[in-house]
């Protein structure tokens, strides 16, 4: 009985913490000045936020199969979100989104034809 309660408490804490990180990324999307810093904030939500929520689900609803699926899901989530962030940042840069003027140093600005 009590071990069940401990599992529920830990899993709930992980779920709430993950949701709070996604929420903070949403605040960042409103607050931060340019598209590159916003993409960085979303990277936090994608990496740590979703990973914590997946771990929470596995803790509450534990089985070996769920554990394997959870590990695969976290790894896939990290890799694909990284590729997504990179492609988005590259597309934004190539269509002329300038970084915010407080970006110092900006060693890319003199480099027009980066591929």
């Amino acid at each position: 009985m009590s071990s069940e309660m401990i599992i529920t408490v830990i899993g709930s804490a992980l779920l709430i913490f993950g949701a709070a990180i996604i929420f903070s990324a949403a605040i960042g999307v409103l607050k931060l000045p340019d598209v590159f810093t916003r993409t960085s904030a979303i990277g936090t939500a994608a990496g740590l936020g979703v990973s914590l929520m997946i771990v929470g689900v596995v803790v509450i609803d534990f089985s070996v199969l769920n554990l394997i699926k959870g590990i695969i899901a976290i790894i896939a989530q990290l890799i694909t979100s990284a590729i997504g962030s990179f492609v988005l940042a590259r597309a934004s840069y190539m269509t002329g989104s300038e970084p915010v003027s407080t970006t110092l140093p900006d060693e890319l600005s003199h480099q027009a034809n980066a591929t």
């Binding site: 590159f36 993409t39 960085s40 904030a41 990277g43 936090t44 990496g47 740590l48 990290l78 890799i79 979100s81 990284a82 590729i83 962030s85 990179f86 940042a89 590259r90 840069y93 890319l108 480099q111 980066a114 591929t115």
Partner: peptide, 10 residues
């Protein structure tokens, strides 16, 4: 790119 504070642009 996975570490949230750094991001490859090009």
């Amino acid at each position: 790119t996975i570490t949230p504070d750094t991001l490859v642009i090009a």
